[in-house]
Design a protein around this nucleic acid. Structure first.
Length: 566
RNA sequence: UGCCCUAUGGUGUAAUGGUAGCACAUCUGAUUCUGGAUCAGCCAGUCUAUGUUCGAAUCAUAGUAGGGCAACCA
């Protein structure tokens, strides 16, 4: 923890470009020195690691400058939104360790937005367009060609007012008409070509306002104004909204009555290698059963990462490391994995689990005898204490830890060779039993040296290898799930023309059914963190019987095994 | 062939006109009560050109490359 705090302070020294803007605004005395941000998710999916980046910024800025950060649900499109998402979003923000000052909904401002829209119609700055979506799109022109004006553009104000009211009465069919701002159909910024302000939605009741409203504001007509109504000073969002900013400012100009003015600043979205962050695609994975749910440990959602064993601190550490810029890059997922490995390496209790067991019999150890041997919980942190593990004549060791004919640099067990059993004795292999048909090793025999018990005066004899083990009689059978990357290509997001399911990694989940774990794991609590000897990190998923160990291994797990056995 | 944004080692990010630094990854060595840890080390960078300046990653101009913008999504 000390080191984490230090690194936080070190990072504080260099401000990101957003904090520079903020300090400038403060030094110029803008907004009476007040700092207010907001985290504005649309409740149409679960939060993912990319949202964590925005959350850390929105809440972090508020903390650093003694301001406030509100949670605002951008719920202006009832066709896509649901209370399920509203709930999960709150849960995940709090899990990350942030607390909003207030919780707001864009739908709280529907009346104010409506009144503002009426005002714009009255001022001749907005009109009702009765063309179809296709016609409007056609008239919009292209980025290189100016658009054409709608035939309804100059209709009488009273007519627009009348129709706008009807839009909200349920007597207008969806997509029959829209309210558009009258700006400039020839603007080089597409968003100024008479952007749509309101559309009619009658088929989906809103998850909060029910059937009260039939006319719903578009993002551009809701977001900036919501910021303004709430008193947001810095509206931080991702780069794709950069071209929206002039429109944001346009509406704010019309709304502004004092010196107060919210300011939109954009930063780069998080892109991770081997990771799909699109909500649409994640929803598809869930709906089509490619994963077990939004919280599947292979998903980049916060709840998925949580089940995989990520801690809030590790995610925040990762976000802290990648920073905020305007460069649209692709971050190596190894950076994220390093953050959790570093934390768990310091904080997790190390325990033993044998994933591919083979029986090891110590022929000179008395039958029926059991010794409870002390083993430290974390060699890097003595304050985490120790526990006792049972040792007996028959043990399980990792199949990979024995080689009949050892290769170069293989320092684990092979005939006539010695290794140390972690926290126990040095043993020497005296033989093995092999299934003649399959060639599989069935049992390994060895003798132990009683003088070499851990902690004893004679025990410091050097041997080249150390093995983890569990006692056959005392160990608990377990099913271990190894989760790898869900996608097998480095940048699945860029494979736009491919069905992304073709990019799925068929080995993203491996279930090992005959694993053996230490008895101390019999009643661990869900999400307790442990580190397996040698093999990685895991947390425990209590929802399943038999006990499932959700392995939070690094994705190179299998490669490394292959490498180690070469 | 419009408008907006961006460009620093393999990846990400600092340096705000004055020594190009840090992290991750890779590789090498050490180490052996697991070690995928730890320690040490190597490799590797300012997109190009011109200009301004005593001095440019930083400022200017022009190129080049990448991203965004043409939803009744956010």
């Amino acid at each position: 923890m000390v080191e984490l705090e230090n690194s936080g302070e070190l990072n504080k020294k260099s401000l990101n470009f957003i904090e520079n803007f903020i300090e400038n605004d403060l030094s110029e005395g803008k907004n009476d020195g007040r700092i207010q941000t907001r985290f504005p998710p649309e409740p149409n999916g679960y939060l993912h690691i990319g949202h964590a980046k925005a959350i850390c910024l929105d809440f972090g800025v508020a903390q650093n400058y003694k301001g406030i950060c509100n949670l605002r649900f951008d719920d202006t499109n009832p066709t896509k939104e649901d209370v399920e998402y509203v709930d999960s979003i709150q849960e995940d923000i709090q899990w990350l360790g942030f607390q909003w000052e207030n919780i707001y909904y864009a739908s709280d401002y529907f009346q104010q937005l409506w009144d503002f829209a009426i005002r714009l119609i009255q001022e001749g700055k907005a009109y009702i367009d009765e063309q179809s979506a296709e016609e409007i799109a056609k008239q919009k022109g292209t980025p290189t060609q100016p658009g054409a004006e709608s035939p309804f553009r100059n209709r009488p104000i009273e007519e627009s007012l009348e129709l706008f009211r009807k839009m909200n009465e349920g007597v207008i069919a969806e997509s029959a008409m829209v309210l558009r701002a009258k700006i400039d159909m020839a603007s080089s910024n597409m968003h100024f070509r008479d952007p749509i302000m309101y559309r009619v939605i009658t088929q989906h009741p809103h998850h909060r306002t029910g059937n009260t409203w039939k006319a719903y504001p578009m993002y551009d007509f809701a977001h900036g104004q919501s910021d303004f109504f709430e008193g947001v000073t810095h509206s931080l969002c991702t780069l794709e909204f950069e071209v929206h900013r002039p429109l944001y400012d346009y509406y704010i100009d019309l709304l502004q009555t004092s010196n107060y003015r919210p300011r939109q600043i954009e930063f780069n979205r998080l892109n991770l290698t081997y990771t799909v962050m699109s909500k649409r695609k994640m929803l598809q994975l869930v709906q089509e059963g490619e994963v077990t749910g939004w919280d599947d440990p292979r998903m980049p959602t916060l709840c998925g990462l949580r089940r995989r064993g990520y801690t809030p601190a590790s995610i925040k550490d990762f976000i802290n490391r990648i920073g905020y810029t305007k460069y649209d890059g692709l971050i190596d997922v190894a950076l994220l994995e390093n953050s959790i490995r570093e934390e768990l390496n310091k904080s997790a209790i190390r325990v033993s689990a044998v994933l591919h067991p083979v029986k090891l019999i110590i022929t000179n150890y008395p039958e029926g005898e059991v010794e409870w041997l002390e083993t430290v919980n974390n060699p890097e942190d003595e304050s985490m204490g120790s526990r006792n593990v049972p040792f007996s004549r028959e043990l399980f060791i990792e199949r990979d830890d024995f080689m009949e004919e050892p290769m170069k640099k293989f320092f684990r067990l092979s005939p006539d060779k010695e290794v140390r059993l972690k926290s126990a004795y040095i043993i020497k292999c005296t033989g093995f039993k092999k299934n003649e048909k399959t060639g599989e090793i069935e049992e390994i025999y060895c003798q132990y040296d009683p003088e070499t018990k851990s902690g004893m005066p004679q025990s410091d004899r050097k041997v080249k290898g150390t093995l983890h083990w569990v006692s056959v009689k005392h160990s608990i059978p377990a099913e271990v799930r190894l989760y790898d990357r869900l996608f097998k290509v480095e940048d699945p997001a860029s494979e736009k023309d491919t069905d992304f399911r073709d990019l799925l990694n068929p080995n993203s989940l491996e279930v090992l059914t005959d694993c053996r774990i230490e008895p101390c794991l019999a009643d661990v609590k869900p999400l307790d963190h442990f580190q397996f000897q040698r093999t990685g990190y895991f947390n425990v998923d209590s929802d399943s019987t038999p006990k499932h160990l959700v392995f939070n291994c690094t994705v190179k797990l299998k490669d490394s095994w292959a490498k180690n056995t070469k």
